[in-house]
Design a protein around this nucleic acid. Structure first.
Length: 1001
RNA sequence: GCGAGGGUAGCCAAGUCUGGUCAAAGGCGUAGGACUCAAGAUCCUAUCCCUAGCGGUUCGGGCGUUCGAAUCGCCCCCCUCGCACCA
């Protein structure tokens, strides 16, 4: 249908104005009148409104049973550095939503608190005390803190307070500057004694439900400091993982009673393909006694095992050479295999004993071939040549399209010697991946035959461990791992570690069920959550270092780790105002049982604790009113821990309906293409952003650049551009207010209609947290429509005021300060922050008016195109609208299309029946052909539009003055079949319905 | 490897679920013009190729389904993030 009316606006509905303009948008002569315009001064406006909000307590929230509540919380910040624009994005999202909900009439609570527990703050103060120059230089040079000042911040609380309140780059400073509608009356921290009381209740309750247990756990550990270390404490080896190896115990045949060779492997399922054991002939080994057994391990392995909770004594020292040529028994298969020498064996890695599976491990294959070729070595170690040559790979895993995988890979890579370690490492990786993902256990693996390798691995391991044929050993995934003190770290097994039992199947199931009821933004995150719940294991929830709540029943100094103490703090916000007035030490578990669960009798609890029953009832009321949270706002990266933990804990501690109703998962932030990082100084502080752009522009830009869940990239040029956008808007608003003329125009109903569409779209978008889409309509598209309205000659002062009135209310959640300012100019009552969010009035939708403007816009486009191509500066423009008979054919074709039977023959027949059409039979065929080709391609919406009672000639005639003004030439409108038309180039014949012919001269 | 999310014109990004209104919104950048003594700002226009408004070639790559695909299916390539005791 492109030939009839090429539509340029999609659902969003945008008019793309094309022509060269001869008049300014807001012509000074008619609109501006030298009105005294206020320049946009964000600093002044923002201070003014922030002060007024504070003065009136605009955002403090009290329970009000008469109003529907809305409770939104956001991950509390960890104040150990400046608040940057990445944080600003995180906190602006809930603020926008809170402001929107408030305007929708909700009693809205948006609280804030500070996470002080954990190690970074202690770490930072420690570094200040240690005069760590690298860190001090960041404080001094990046964050502009004087030496005098930072040297006073050696206590965690001083340090935190600085980054919350005192620094101009601090969090509360920044949040205030950005105009967040936070109820500061509920400010709290994770170190408040009252908070600790709640956490104590939380952990005792979890424990009583059997969800907290003790067990052993591997951690990075510095033997010199005798302390567990975090990545923060490391000089080398940041991010290095701890891998769990299975030690398969091979029993030495003959002599020495029972001596086991524990070979470490990540692939216990390959035990069926074992052909021999490797020892390094020249490395030092020791015989140790542990758990009533004797083991042969490398000398380096003994202390490692000792750290991993193995009581052991060294019986004697030896070398690998001593055991070469002897034989061991293989568990599960009971085969007898020889011990052979190999130089690739690393004595400082795991146990220093290696099981050889040449069919599936490239190192083993190559080492075996090396040895088989090496007569001298055979001689030297006194190996039986014929037996050695009889050793060949035993394939016990089948992979489609492969033989023994290691054999294939070594062949492909052309590896010749075990000294080619880089290529062997690579081949090993490939073998592991290939077999793990696609391998199946071969028939020679007994009852594991046919199992996928990924499943068999776990099963074989479990079987070996259960029958005492194997043990476990941990090793770093990479070395070295070095403590700040310079000592090499080890893996230590902590044996009295406390865990939260996230592996509990029933608990998991409850979480999975709850997940289906939670509104997730974006919805795609649901599968991610499901997977996390699936593989989540028991979580070590206690630590020895850092700040935090003491594990309530423990005397040994465990504190609750910081991801585990912050799972239900949203409930704490509801209690703060009342609880803060009570002495913390009186907050017994009975208090929380009553407040959270409604258990017990307030009078008797009051009697036991010495608290007022009224205070207890008050807290219960607050909690019951606000909970559950409507939305939790946090970052994508917290899905694998914090957010999922939160669901687990809510389900375990509270009745099911108190689980969060929705979770919003934010994307991460990038600064000019680089990942933001406070420690590397890749940050743009909120303080600077507000200073340079103002709070509103910062918010506008943050909310417009992408939807909340997408990763965003802060770019200075873009922020600059948004500053100009704000200035333009502020000026435009004043111009709209200063408008003098008041007259009704045909375009009025168009602008009304467009406004309704934007109001509708913006509201829908905000319900789904689509801040970008909402702004697209509330700011940019509406602005475009107002421009078009003025360009079309619209001058209705009352209408423009009404539009502006709705406009600032649409924008108030995003740019609250400037919206208040304009609201005040409009004479609005109270704060715009409390004004109702615009509701769409569908009665004001006017599809015909919209279609008319769309038609004109397209016409403008066509004319502009012709001018561009021909470079004609037109003095005269003649438009010919399609003749009646074509319209009649068009209508018939449309009717047939709606009936689903538009065919050439039918259309021709029908058309020729009409005596008004019949005379044009020659042109008819070609026109009908085009209709038959184009109309079926139209969508429902498009068909509906074309069916509107549109008067083409009247529209064109009415737009004559407009077109004349646009192109600075005289404009004539004719019907294409008017006998007296001016048509020197015979253009009129080209006119078709909705697409007039054009002649320029 | 496992898991999740992506690849759209110079950049950001909408559109993909619900195939046709998509040469593909909007913003930015760039260019031209209007306004101005001038600069900035503002406003208008242009920004894949071609062209009296026609048409042509596009939406990571390939194949396919369909009258019709940025949108559906299959295969492949590439990017980002998470994988645990760390906030």
């Amino acid at each position: 249908m492109a030939g009839l009316c090429c539509n340029r606006w999609g659902e969003i509905g945008v008019i793309v104005p094309r022509p060269t303009n001869r008049q300014a948008l807001y012509p000074r002569s008619t609109i501006l009148r030298r009105t005294v315009m206020k320049a946009y001064d964000p600093g002044e406006i923002e201070r003014k409104w922030q002060a007024r909000w504070t003065e009136r307590g605009a955002f403090s929230a009290r329970p009000d049973p008469g109003r529907e509540r809305y409770f939104v919380t956001v991950a509390w910040p960890y104040p150990s550095g400046p608040m940057h624009v990445g944080h600003a994005r995180t906190y602006t999202v809930p603020d926008v939503i809170a402001r929107y909900k408030r305007m929708k009439g909700h009693n809205c609570l948006f609280p804030m608190g500070w996470h002080l527990t954990g190690s970074p703050i202690v770490g930072a103060t420690q570094r200040i005390r240690d005069r760590d120059e690298r860190y001090l230089s960041i404080l001094r040079d990046k964050y502009g803190i004087s030496e005098d000042l930072y040297l006073t911040m050696t206590e965690p609380m001083q340090f935190a307070d600085y980054w919350i309140n005192r620094s101009r780059m601090g969090y509360k400073t920044g949040m205030t500057a950005l105009g967040y509608s936070i109820d500061w009356g509920r400010e709290c921290t994770s170190l408040d004694p009252h908070f600790s009381k709640m956490v104590g209740w939380q952990y005792r309750t979890l424990r009583s439900k059997g969800l907290v247990t003790t067990g052993s756990h591997p951690v990075k550990f510095c033997p010199r400091d005798n302390q567990a270390v975090t990545d923060h404490d490391l000089l080398d080896g940041e991010g290095v993982g701890i891998m769990e190896f299975t030690l398969i115990k091979y029993r030495l045949e003959g002599g020495e009673g029972a001596l086991f060779l524990p070979a470490a492997t990540l692939r216990p399922e390959t035990v069926f393909g074992l052909t021999n054991i490797w020892l390094h002939p020249d490395a030092a080994y020791v015989v140790i006694e542990t758990g009533g057994e004797r083991w042969l391990v490398s000398r380096e392995a003994a202390p490692k095992l000792a750290h991993q909770d193995k009581a052991l004594t060294v019986v004697r020292e030896t070398t690998g050479r001593e055991f070469i040529g002897r034989r061991v028994r293989v568990p599960l298969t009971d085969a007898s295999v020889p011990i052979l020498p190999a130089t690739f064996v690393k004595p400082d890695h795991t146990s220093g004993v290696v099981g050889s599976v040449p069919a599936h491990a490239p190192f083993d294959l190559v080492a075996l071939r090396d040895l088989q070729r090496d007569g001298a070595a055979q001689e030297a170690f006194g190996l039986d040549r014929s037996e050695l040559s009889s050793l060949s790979p035993i394939q016990m895993i089948a992979v489609d399209g492969h033989g023994a995988v290691a054999v294939d890979l070594v062949e492909e890579a052309g590896i010749r010697s075990q000294a080619e370690t880089a290529r062997l490492d690579d081949a090993t990786n490939q073998a592991y991946k290939l077999e793990f993902s696609r391998g199946v256990m071969a028939p020679n693996t007994g009852r594991w035959s046919g199992l996928r390798v990924s499943a068999a691995k776990e099963q074989v391991k479990r079987e070996l461990l259960a029958s005492g044929l194997a043990d476990t050993m941990y090793e770093f995934s990479e070395t070295p791992v070095t403590c700040r003190c310079g000592a090499p770290c080890v893996v230590k097994t902590v044996t009295d570690q406390w865990f939260i039992r996230y592996s509990d199947p029933e608990w998991k199931q409850e979480v999975l069920d709850a997940l289906e009821r939670i509104q997730l933004v974006p919805p795609e995150s649901r599968t991610y959550y499901r997977n996390v719940v699936d593989w989540l294991n028991d979580w070590p929830c206690t630590r020895r270092v850092g700040l935090g709540t003491r594990l309530p029943w423990d005397e040994t100094g465990w504190i609750i780790e910081s991801l585990s103490d912050s799972t239900i703090y949203m409930a704490y916000y509801t209690l703060v105002p009342l609880m803060r007035r009570l002495p913390a030490e009186r907050l017994s578990d009975a208090v929380f049982d009553f407040v959270f669960l409604g258990r017990g009798d307030p009078a008797s609890i009051a009697a036991q604790t010495g608290l007022e029953a009224e205070a207890l009832r008050g807290m219960r009321t607050e909690f019951a009113y606000w909970y559950p949270q409507n939305h939790r706002v946090s970052a994508n990266e917290l899905i694998p821990n914090h957010l999922t933990f939160m669901i687990f804990h809510h389900l375990a501690l509270f009745p099911r309906p108190l689980c969060p109703e929705g979770i919003v998962n934010l994307g991460l932030g990038v600064l000019e293409g680089r990942r933001m990082s406070s420690s590397k100084g890749v940050v743009f502080a909120v303080a600077e952003a507000v200073e340079r752009f103002g709070a509103d522009v910062t918010r506008l830009y943050l909310m417009y650049m992408c939807e909340p869940w997408q990763d965003f990239d802060w770019r200075g040029v873009q922020a600059d551009a948004h500053r100009r956008q704000m200035e333009r808007f502020f000026a435009a608003a004043q111009e709209m207010l200063a408008m003098e003329a008041t007259s009704e125009q045909p375009v009025d109903s168009w602008l009304e209609s467009r406004l309704q569409r934007h109001v509708l779209a913006a509201g829908q978008a905000l319900e789904g947290f689509q801040t970008r889409r909402a702004l697209q309509h509330s700011f940019f598209l509406l602005q475009q429509d107002v421009r078009w309205y003025l360009r079309r000659g619209g001058r209705n002062r009352d209408l423009l005021r009404r539009v502006l009135d709705a406009w600032v209310r649409l924008l108030a959640p995003f740019v609250p300060h400037v919206s208040e300012e304009i609201w005040e100019m409009l004479g609005g009552k109270g704060f715009v922050s409390d004004a109702p969010f615009p509701a769409p009035d569908e009665g004001r939708l006017d599809p015909l008016a919209e279609f008319r403007e769309e038609y004109l816009s397209n016409l403008l486009g066509d004319i502009a195109e012709i001018i561009k191509v021909t470079k004609i500066g037109p003095r005269r423009m003649v438009l010919y609208c399609a003749p009646q008979w074509k319209w009649e054919v068009f209508r018939r074709a449309m009717a047939m299309a709606r009936g689903g039977h538009l065919y050439m023959s039918g259309l021709m027949k029908s058309a020729l029946e009409d005596p008004a059409i019949a005379p044009h039979s020659r042109e008819l065929a070609r026109f009908a052909q085009k209709l038959v080709a184009d109309i079926p391609k139209l969508s429902e919406d498009q068909l509906a539009k074309y069916a509107l009672p549109f008067e083409e000639h009247a529209t064109l005639a009415g737009a004559g003055a407009f077109l004349s003004g646009e192109f600075g030439c005289e404009v004539e409108v004719h019907r294409a079949d008017a006998p007296d038309r001016y048509d020197p180039q015979e253009k009129a014949g080209k006119a078709v319905p909705l697409r007039p012919a054009i002649f320029l001269e």
